[in-house]
């Protein structure tokens, strides 16, 4: 299993990072974290999928609306490294159980500080993850705006 957050790290460096974490089983339909929860752990998906949702009012009631799905190897919950350290989405294991590695923020920070070369690579990998999310959502936002403008101009 290769994790996007550990790209470019040597085998030993990756092992050291993974040893900081705890393997968690997320049963089907169970929440890994909820929007607004304190974000003190970062998750690396090992098996199954993690479904990310946001609440939306649909016909007068609140529904969790699908936003994104994370596959094995992908990172979930980078809010743990970004102030104000609160999750901005809700993460759930959908139909099948998922397995994730939970990396505590403090332990990860200490490792990054003690191993700046590995820390640099992890920081770059994290920038790729965050940058991809930004690019995706600015594109989707613009497409929705374009549709709104077309409807209003019709």
């Amino acid at each position: 299993m290769t994790h996007e957050l550990l790209n470019g790290l040597s085998f030993d460096e990756a092992e050291q990072v993974l040893k900081l974490g705890t393997r968690l089983i997320v049963p089907s339909g169970t929440e890994l974290f909820r929007l607004g929860d304190p974000a003190d752990r970062l998750f690396l998906t090992e098996r199954g999928r993690i479904r990310l949702t946001l609440p939306m009012q649909v016909r007068g009631r609140e529904e969790d609306i699908f936003v994104e799905e994370r596959s094995p190897g992908q990172t979930v919950g980078w809010s743990a490294l970004i102030p104000p350290y609160r999750f901005t989405l809700t993460a759930t294991a959908p139909l099948l159980e998922a397995v994730v590695i939970a990396l505590p923020r403090e332990a990860l920070r200490e490792y990054l500080a003690a191993n700046p070369a590995a820390g640099y690579k992890i920081a770059l990998n994290l920038a790729v993850v965050i940058g991809h999310r930004l690019q995706m959502f600015q594109t989707m936002w613009l497409r929705e705006m374009q549709r709104t403008v077309e409807v209003r101009s019709a």
Binding site: E68, H132, Q135, M136, F137, T139, M140, R143, E144
Partner: peptide, 10 residues
Amino acid sequence: MEQAAAESFV
């Protein structure tokens, strides 16, 4: 579908 379209653009 929008994500797929956005992936293509990105």
